[in-house]
Computed example of a mutant assay.
Amino acid sequence: MSDAPETPKKKKKGKLGRLLILGFGAVLLLGGGIGAGLFFSGALGSSKAHAEEVDPNKPQLVPRGGEHGEGGEGDEYESSYQPLEKEFTSNLKDSTHFVQMGIAVGTNYDARVLENVTKHELAIRSAVLMTISETEEDQVFTTEGKEQLQRRLVQTINHVLEEKTGFGGVGNVYFTNFIVQ
């Protein structure tokens, strides 16, 4: 007698377990399908929206070969460079030393970025001098410190350009000379 009641209970548990596993699997498949559909429709929709967002009044990336426009991921772009007219001389933060440097800017955008740099050079020079004067003495003696200064100068110049023109576009700052005294 004890064998008879146990057998039906095991079968019920087995059927119930199978139903739960099948139901859970169906929910996972359905959810995964919906998620994948939303992901791919969002990805395709965002690229269409991005293509529509290109403002012809703002500088555009210049792919190698000279055609204007936004390129896809992995494309290589032309680089343009422009030195700033005069060198910069500034004291360093909390130091008796000063630094004298010449800089050039680089961009992968069309000529409008460099035209904006020339047009707003006075404001850029002022902001660059402020950034240099906030630089610690230790930074100018190491390569790592100079690289940090370059990144800060890129941010500074782009900030000025964004304020004045609504678009930055400077990708890097290069030292054309660098003297610490």
Results as ranks from 00 to 15, higher is better:
15 K>T: 10
140 V>W: 14
43 A>I: 05
14 G>N: 10
22 L>I: 07
121 E>P: 02
20 L>C: 06
13 K>I: 10
178 F>P: 11
168 G>R: 01
97 H>C: 14
28 L>R: 04
37 G>P: 03
23 G>I: 04
59 P>M: 10
81 Y>D: 12
7 T>V: 10
39 F>E: 15
108 N>R: 07
123 A>R: 05
27 V>T: 15
33 G>M: 04
66 G>R: 04
11 K>Q: 14
81 Y>Q: 14
16 L>C: 06
70 E>I: 11
149 L>T: 02
171 G>V: 01
16 L>T: 07
72 G>E: 10
66 G>A: 07
90 S>W: 05
134 E>P: 09
17 G>P: 00
98 F>N: 11
54 V>Q: 06
108 N>C: 02
4 A>V: 08
157 I>P: 06
81 Y>M: 14
42 G>H: 14
107 T>G: 00
93 K>V: 07
171 G>M: 03
9 K>F: 15
61 L>I: 00
44 L>K: 08
115 E>R: 14
23 G>M: 08
177 N>T: 15
154 V>I: 11
24 F>V: 13
165 T>I: 01
58 K>Y: 06
165 T>M: 01
71 G>H: 07
173 V>C: 09
170 V>H: 01
86 K>M: 07
94 D>A: 14
96 T>A: 12
94 D>K: 15
65 G>H: 07
14 G>Y: 04
105 V>W: 00
52 E>Y: 03
10 K>W: 02
132 I>H: 09
129 L>Y: 02
159 H>D: 13
66 G>I: 05
172 N>D: 13
67 E>D: 06
169 G>K: 01
47 S>V: 14
132 I>S: 04
74 G>P: 01
110 D>E: 08
32 G>R: 09
140 V>A: 05
62 V>C: 01
95 S>C: 06
108 N>F: 00
3 D>M: 14
82 Q>D: 13
73 E>Y: 05
136 E>S: 13
2 S>L: 12
36 A>Y: 15
140 V>M: 09
15 K>G: 04
17 G>N: 08
120 H>D: 11
29 L>A: 12
89 T>R: 15
154 V>M: 07
96 T>R: 15
137 E>S: 10
148 Q>W: 07
90 S>N: 07
160 V>M: 05
10 K>G: 06
58 K>C: 00
18 R>A: 14
125 R>V: 13
61 L>H: 01
5 P>C: 00
85 E>G: 15
45 G>P: 03
116 N>G: 06
128 V>N: 04
111 A>N: 10
140 V>E: 07
22 L>Q: 12
114 L>G: 13
168 G>F: 01
82 Q>C: 05
139 Q>V: 05
49 A>P: 05
172 N>W: 15
24 F>H: 05
153 L>M: 15
61 L>E: 01
45 G>H: 04
2 S>H: 11
163 E>H: 05
78 E>I: 05
141 F>L: 10
67 E>I: 03
169 G>V: 01
114 L>F: 03
54 V>K: 13
80 S>M: 13
93 K>F: 14
156 T>C: 13
159 H>L: 06
180 V>I: 14
102 G>D: 02
112 R>G: 00
147 E>T: 08
73 E>R: 12
44 L>R: 04
128 V>L: 11
28 L>S: 11
61 L>D: 00
19 L>W: 12
79 S>A: 14
38 L>W: 13
163 E>V: 04
8 P>R: 12
65 G>S: 03
157 I>L: 08
162 E>P: 00
148 Q>R: 14
145 G>K: 08
176 T>N: 11
129 L>W: 02
108 N>P: 00
78 E>V: 10
